[in-house]
Write a protein that binds this DNA or RNA. Sequence first.
DNA 1: AGCCCTATCTATAAGTA
DNA 2: TTACTTATAGATAGGGC
Lengths: 100, 100
Amino acid sequence: MGRVKLKIKRLESYSNRQVTYSKRRTGILKKAKELSILCDIHIILLMFSPTGKPTLFHGERSSIEEVIAKFAQLTPQERAKRKLESLEALRKPSRNWTMI
Amino acid sequence: MGRVKLKIKRLESYSNRQVTYSKRRTGILKKAKELSILCDIHIILLMFSPTGKPTLFHGERSSIEEVIAKFAQLTPQERAKRKLESLEALRKPSRNWTMI
DNA sequence: AGCCCTATCTATAAGTA
DNA sequence: TTACTTATAGATAGGGC
């Protein structure tokens, strides 16, 4: 969608990967938000920049735990039992996150 | 991106939400795949159709467990210890999933 | 319920300052 | 580099089968 048609393969230049990530991150986040609103659905988008910085998007209706539990088709009982223990770390503050 | 500019709000009609979901799902999956390849990054996209059918995309380099563990900044040791127990259900077969 | 079409809107690759 | 611009490629809303 630019001046030139890109081949979809790993960009050679690191700085190019950063610039492209930055631009496309904005775009895909917008798409995820629009989709979640228009169609009233649960959605999770989790991605890492080339430098390793994570971005998490989830719809307004749901936390990441809820969506993943839904995906795993856990019953509420199972969910409570397991407590989605491994995901609790996601709630720890003071991380280099972008949470949306 | 169509004949008319859509207002980004919940679509009134259920059938319309389904149709729009189907179209935009294709689009956002393509974006996720392109981003993961171009920028050589980890990414997870998990979404549910209006009927509740889940779709999971993850880059070729990583499983959902790996990406989420990375996000949670678990060490390999922690990861092994916890075994990401709650996510094991994701591996169960014969679900109504689209895994990509 | 899909699957094509295409006018129209949107994202973005390079370019520019 | 940090934005901003814009020509162009890409996504999609509504319509037709």
